[in-house]
Amino acid sequence: MNKEKIKITGIDLYYGDFQALKNINMILPQNKITAFIGPSGCGKTTLLKSLNRMNDLISDCRISGEILLDGQNIYENIDVNLLRKRVGMVFQKPNLFPMSIYDNVAYGPRTHGIRSKVMLDEIVEKSLVRAVIWDEVKDRIKKSALSLSGGQQQRICIARALAVEPEVLLMDEPTSALDPVSTSKIEELVLELKNDYTIIIVTHNMQQAVRVSDKTAFFLLGEIVEYRDTESIFSMPEDKRTEDYITGRFG
């Protein structure tokens, strides 16, 4: 059951001369939610972005080590666009395109060659239903996506990511720009999605990590200090630094 989806071995990552990740080793289990926590600048988002190679966009970024997705090294002989189809991403701020809701969700499938209107209609509806936003927007899916509230936009972003049928979903502080009601809606949604996707969520909010995640990794200065079941890391942290962070003494 606890199949390993992603295996990270000996990852070092540099931005120019600055080492952002130091010898990261971890296994991310399938159909589980893993939370990355830690203070700002500790490398958690950097590691997240290494998993779908969004770090490639940064020109002076160098990475060494190995990341295996289902046993396949994602930094060797791989079509990076197909990788990103398999490993979807939801960003910190909702980043819907200035188009209709429909076109936003259909963007991914169209990118991957689906032209049939019937199929697109079906995918769009299915994705919006999965993201629990269909009932709110079904009467205006041809309207601009930017007219929605921030929380709705973020759920459309999730629907857009789901529309390409990814296996892994990376979420980079998906609720940090949202109000509490929208946040709890997203959290419920994330828990639902767990059955079908492997989810990795970066969060600044430790309650959020407790509420949604199965496993938690605590990052500090580019290293993983502790990576265990969420329950045990929060009830009895092994490392003093973890304890200080989760009890709010710094960060």
Binding site: N52, M54, L57, N81, L82, L83, R84, K85, G88, M89, F91, K93, N95, L96, F97, P98, Y107, G108, T111, H112, C157, R160, A161, V164
Partner: peptide
């Protein structure tokens, strides 16, 4: 963020430029 959003969906640089 539009550029990143499109790339994260698996779109190529070209597709992103012309369709987003």
């Amino acid at each position: 963020q539009y550029y990143e959003g499109s790339l994260a969906l698996g779109a190529t640089h070209e597709r992103t430029v012309f369709f987003t």
